[in-house]
Nucleic acid binder design. Structure first.
Lengths: 109, 109
DNA sequence: TTAATAAATCAATATAATTTGATTAACAAC
DNA sequence: GTTGTTAATCAAATTATATTGATTTATTAA
């Protein structure tokens, strides 16, 4: 019985760790802005996001990587270009309906 | 027309700032654990949370303050004791149904 | 009044995340 | 080939967060 409780504690801890990572990725207004831009424009390459968000290339790459590692966006490489788009399934699973207008496809609100 | 766009940008930025704060509060596994404990036990004083989460008093106070400032929990002072409970309305507004079992009252899943 | 308890705060340290500018690798156009 | 472009990565500096242990304030109990 003690073992069962211990195992539950471990898996609960892993769960908290998993969500910690996802919320960390969301816990930055620049990254929320990036998600919003990708939501509105669908798939975009880094050089097209850059002028909209007014961010240097290396900084933007850094933030895109954080969103990517958290599974909130997905990447598709085409030649020298990297195209990013929102992982809608993941965002739907995390966030309430309230975020529909911000991070969910146009027409949902 | 330019002014309208500018104003929208400002209010969008304020919105991102608001959610940044809330996601920052969620972006820590210890705080997710605190939320989970409060969800399961309803209203609790600091000294009752302390042994469950195995955290020093000052550390716990620090994390409770972050959750409180983000509006994710609420506080009620009774004498020397401070009782904290989850702000269910706020969590419902932020998080998807998936979190029902973790941060929403027992019986919801 | 004195002693004990609850919880917030403080200052110092430690740890982590972000920004910056430069460099690199991969590809495309000439 | 050489040149220009895209985007990732790196190391250093900066900034933000978290942890620790001590102190403080308020309240309660003896």
């Amino acid at each position: 019985m003690d073992i069962k409780i211990a195992l539950e504690d471990v898996s609960l801890d892993l769960l908290f760790e998993k969500y910690e990572g996802k919320f960390k990725a969301l816990a930055d207004k620049k990254r929320l802005h990036i998600l919003n831009i990708l939501t509105q424009n669908g798939s975009m390459c880094v050089c097209d996001i850059e002028p909209i968000i007014e961010m240097t290339q290396s900084k933007l790459s850094y933030h895109l990587k954080i969103l990517l590692d958290a599974g909130l966006i997905e990447k598709e490489a085409r030649g020298t270009w990297s195209y990013y788009h929102v992982n809608q399934k993941e965002l739907n699973a995390l966030l309430s309906e309230q975020f529909c207008c911000l991070f969910k496809p146009p027409g949902c609100c």
